[in-house]
Simulated assay, not measured.
Amino acid sequence: MSDGTITHVVVPGTFDPVTLGHVDVIRRTRRLFPRVTVAVAASVNKRGQGTTFTLDERVEMIREALALEGLPDDVEVAPFTGLLVAFAHEIGAGGIVKGLRAMTDFEYELQQADLNSHLSPDLESVFVMSSPQYGYVSSSIVREIASMGSDVSTLVPANVNERLRARYGR
C-alpha cells in the first residue's frame, strides 16, 4: 500500500448466519481487491442480543460457505473483538467494505464510516451495493423464517441451511 493503492480490505459483520447476500458482497469485493479478509465480529448482534451461533460456529460456517460457493482460497476469514479499525490495522488492511441493500442500510453504514474515519483517517470506507436478488435478505429475516420452520434454502448457502434446520427443525 506504499503508493496509496489499497490491496487488502476487510468485510466485517456478525454473519449470524452468513447469507447468500453476504457471499455475493464478498465475491464482488474480491473482484475489486486482491486480498479480502472477512472479519467475523464476536460482539452481540445489532439488536443488542446474543448471537444465535457462537463465534467459532459462524467462522466455520463462512469458511465452508465460501468454499461451497467457489470463492478463491485467498479470501481469509478471521474472528475479531474490539474496534474494527484496530483489527484492520492489526492485519494491515487499508479499507473497510460494507454491503448495502437499501437506503436504511446506507444511513446506518454512513454513520459507522464517518466514525471509523474519525478514529482512523487512513482507512477508506467502500460501499458495495447488493445484487437486486439479495436486496431483501438479512440474517435476522433468515433466522426468523427458519425459526418458524420455513424453508430458507434459497437465502443461505447449503451448509448454513443444514445448520439452521438442525437448530430450529423443520
Results as ranks from 00 to 15, higher is better:
G4S: 11
I6C: 04
T7D: 01
H8I: 05
H8P: 00
H8W: 06
H8N: 03
V11A: 03
T14M: 04
T14Q: 04
T14V: 15
V18C: 01
V18S: 00
V18A: 00
T19G: 03
G21R: 07
G21T: 08
H22V: 07
T29F: 05
T29K: 08
L32W: 05
L32Y: 07
R35I: 03
V36H: 03
V38H: 04
V38D: 02
A39G: 13
V40T: 07
A41Q: 06
K46A: 12
G50E: 10
T52G: 02
T52F: 08
F53P: 01
T54C: 10
L55Y: 04
L55A: 08
E57T: 13
E57D: 15
R58K: 09
V59S: 05
V59M: 03
E60Y: 08
I62G: 01
R63E: 15
E64I: 14
E64Q: 13
A65T: 13
L66D: 02
L66W: 02
L66P: 01
A67M: 12
L68A: 15
L68I: 13
E69G: 05
E69A: 09
G70F: 06
L71Q: 11
P72Q: 06
P72H: 10
P72D: 07
D73Q: 14
V75Q: 05
V77E: 00
A78W: 06
P79Q: 07
F80T: 01
F80R: 01
T81E: 15
T81L: 10
G82C: 12
L84Q: 06
V85I: 14
F87S: 02
F87P: 00
H89T: 10
A93C: 09
G94H: 05
L100N: 03
L100K: 03
R101Y: 12
A102R: 14
A102M: 12
M103P: 05
M103I: 15
D105S: 08
D105H: 07
F106K: 03
F106M: 13
F106A: 06
E109A: 10
L110I: 13
L110H: 10
Q112N: 11
A113Q: 05
A113I: 11
D114R: 08
N116W: 07
S117H: 14
H118E: 13
L119Q: 04
S120Y: 06
D122K: 08
L123Q: 00
E124R: 13
E124V: 11
S125T: 15
S125P: 08
F127S: 01
F127M: 04
M129F: 11
M129N: 09
G135I: 13
V137W: 00
S138N: 11
S139G: 13
V142T: 09
V142M: 09
R143H: 03
R143I: 08
E144F: 06
E144D: 14
I145S: 05
I145H: 02
A146E: 13
S147N: 10
G149C: 12
S150F: 15
D151F: 08
D151A: 07
V152A: 02
L155Y: 08
V156F: 03
V156L: 04
A158D: 14
N159V: 15
N159C: 14
V160M: 05
V160K: 01
V160S: 04
N161A: 15
E162K: 06
R165V: 14
A166Y: 10
G169K: 10
